[in-house]
Design a protein around this nucleic acid. Sequence first.
DNA 1: CTATTAGTCTACTTTATGGTAGTATTTAAA
DNA 2: TTTAAATACTACCATAAAGTAGACTAATAG
Lengths: 137, 137
Amino acid sequence: MHFSKTTEYAIRVLSYLHRHNETSHSVNVLHQELGLPYKYLTKMMTELVKKGLVTASRGREGGLSLAKSADQIRLCDILEAIGEPLEYERCILGFEKCDASNPCALHDQWAPPKAMIEEMLTTTTLDSLIHNKETKL
Amino acid sequence: MHFSKTTEYAIRVLSYLHRHNETSHSVNVLHQELGLPYKYLTKMMTELVKKGLVTASRGREGGLSLAKSADQIRLCDILEAIGEPLEYERCILGFEKCDASNPCALHDQWAPPKAMIEEMLTTTTLDSLIHNKETKL
DNA sequence: CTATTAGTCTACTTTATGGTAGTATTTAAA
DNA sequence: TTTAAATACTACCATAAAGTAGACTAATAG
C-alpha cells in the first residue's frame, strides 16, 4: 500500500495550507517551503482548484488557500481529487467480479484490512492530522 | 492496495498446485488451466523454484509441484519470493525516516490498517485459503 | 534416440508516473 | 493605465516497471 507521489504531494501541500491559513500562499512559496517541483505543483494545484478543494486568486497578492474548512476535507476526498484509484476497493487478486457470492480465494482474508483502510480514509480529515502536532511535511 | 499481476499469478498458481497436489503439472497445463501467458509463467515459475517454494523436474513426466506443505507457505513468503516490495512497511507519505519518534503527519492514522495488513500477510497460508472451498482461480 | 519439459537470455511493448516547457490570461498595486 | 505577480492551459518528454514473446539450451524418462 502506498500513495502515488502526486497524492503524497497533495496531502503535504494541503496540510501546509491548513497550518498556515492566516493567509494565502503562492505556488512559488509552496515550492520553496516543501521542496516540491514548481511546475509539477502548478499542474497539481490547478487540478485541486477544479475539484473544489482549493481556491486560487490570481494576480498580485494572489495565491492558494483551502476552499473548505479542514474538518471537511477527508483523505478520500484528496485521493479522489487527484484521481488516484481507490485500490483497496478492487479485488486483491485482480478479478473483475469478486464479491461475497462469487469470491476469490483471498476475499475473506482481505476483508478486514480493507475495511480498516476504508475507515481510515473516510474518517481522517486534514484537521485531525494537524492535531498530531508539528510533524514534518 | 493491490498486488502486482505477477504476485496475483503466483498466488493463483500456487493455490492450483496445492489443490491438485496428487501429481505435478507442466507449465503448459498451468497456462491452459489458469489462462495465464505461457512465457511469463515459465519465467515466474523458475523464480519460485529458485526461492524454494516450488520443485521442478525436467523431462518426460516432469513438471512443477509445491516444495513445502501448504501450511508452511504464507502470503508474505510468496510476496518475498516474487520480489514484491512490502509497500505497507514504508511511510505512507514517502518519507525515508518515519517512526514513532519522528513521525509524518499520517503516521498514527496509518498504524492500525498497517498492522492489519501485516497480520493478514503473515498468518494467511496457502492452506487456509483453500479451506474456503472451491473458489475461483 | 526422441519427445517432453524446464531454464536462460534477450529484446520488445505497454502502462503508469513523474517531470518540463512555453504561452496565454487574470488581477491588483503602483 | 501600466506592469509585475501569479495562475491557467496545453502539450510533450523521460523513465522505470511490468508484462509479453521468441529462440535457444539443458535435462530426463522411456
